[in-house]
Each structure stands twice: as structure tokens, then as C-alpha cells.
């Protein structure tokens, strides 16, 4: 049941991201609610559900950007897994405050973008991909992406809390995310 709820949540986020934020772009850049959602899921210490969310979000992102499959799925999977390792080994629970979250979120986005750029470059070299993500995504655009997503960090966090609540109601025995 919880996986169906996750799937519906991702469909909802896709709808909001495309339907609402396409109209509110800052300097041609929109937020990425999928990445924020996966980020919060990966920072949740006692659940492995973030991997499922990372995979599904990546699939949605790949298809919605029209990129070659895997351009975002693989980077999101790797980056969320990396984030979890960092969270489990180096960041103690009491250290997770908003300041650290902002740093972690920036690192997570940077990691996803760099991996995506590399995957896109590799698939382009293999001749599988007709278009490569340009290095332009790392210029001023990236700063705008980070700022825009930071503005939405708290609303997405509230959405994650709501989802947790729904999950608890539907799956009472589930103590996970």
C-alpha cells in the first residue's frame, strides 16, 4: 500500500511541477520537486524507501525532460545512496538542523547534476543520445536552481510530513518513512 501512496505522491508532484511551476520560472529556471522529495526521503535514517522513490522520480524526470533514459535515474539513485551513507556515518541525528540541511541539499543537487552531465556525455558519445546536457546548467543557472529549491524546501518538507501521516494511517504497523 505504501508504494502506491509513494507513486501517487510522485504523480502529484509531477503534476504540480509541470502544471504550476511552469508558470513561475525564475530566469527560465523551475524548481525540481522530485529532487527535494527524494532528498528528504534519503535523510530519513531508518527507512530504505528512498531508493524506490529515487528510482521512480528518476524515471519521471527522464521522461519529462525528454532525456535519454538513465540520464537522471542513475544519478538520483547514486546521489541519494551517497547521501544516505554520509548521513549514516558522519552526520549525527542531533546535527540535522536547517543550516546543515541546506548544505546537504546543495551537495545533493550538485552531485545529481554532475552525475547527470556525465551520463548524458557518455550516452552522447555512444551515440544513444541525441542531445547532451550542456555545461550551461552549472553556471548562474545552477545558483538560481539552488535558491529556488531552497525556497521550496519547507513546503516539500511539510508534504513529506503529510505523506508520513497518511502512510501511518493506511499502514499502522509501518514505522518507516
Amino acid at each position: 500500500m505504501k508504494y502506491i501512496i509513494y507513486l501517487l505522491a510522485i504523480i502529484f508532484l509531477a503534476g504540480v511541477n509541470v502544471g504550476v511551476f511552469s508558470y513561475f520560472k525564475i530566469l527560465g529556471v523551475g524548481p525540481n520537486l522530485f529532487l527535494l522529495f527524494v532528498f528528504f526521503a534519503a535523510t530519513e535514517k531508518y527507512s530504505d524507501d528512498y531508493l524506490f522513490l529515487a528510482f521512480i522520480s528518476g524515471v519521471f524526470l527522464d521522461f519529462f525532460t525528454g532525456a535519454f533514459f538513465g540520464t537522471f535515474t542513475l544519478p538520483i539513485l547514486f546521489s541519494s545512496f551517497l547521501l544516505r551513507i554520509i548521513m549514516s556515518n558522519w552526520v549525527l541525528l542531533f546535527e540535522v538542523n536547517w543550516k546543515n540541511l541546506i548544505i546537504l541539499m546543495t551537495a545533493f543537487f550538485t552531485s545529481v547534476y554532475i552525475f547527470a552531465w556525465l551520463v548524458s556525455l557518455a550516452t552522447f558519445k555512444f551515440g544513444w543520445n541525441f542531445q547532451q546536457i550542456g555545461f550551461g546548467v552549472f553556471t548562474w543557472k545552477f545558483v538560481v536552481v539552488i535558491i529556488y529549491n531552497l525556497l521550496l524546501l519547507y513546503p516539500v518538507y511539510l508534504f513529506v510530513l503529510l505523506l508520513k501521516k497518511i502512510n501511518r494511517n493506511f499502514v499502522p504497523q509501518n514505522r518507516n518513512f
Binding site: N17, V18, S22, K25, T65, G66, Q131, I133, K141
Partner: peptide, 12 residues
């Protein structure tokens, strides 16, 4: 899809 993320310059 309307290129909502600004990552690629294409639409489906």
C-alpha cells in the same frame, strides 16, 4: 512535457 526543469531544451 513542457521542459519544466530547464535541464534540457526539448519537449515531448
Amino acid at each position: 512535457s513542457q521542459n519544466p526543469f530547464g535541464l534540457t531544451d526539448s519537449v515531448v
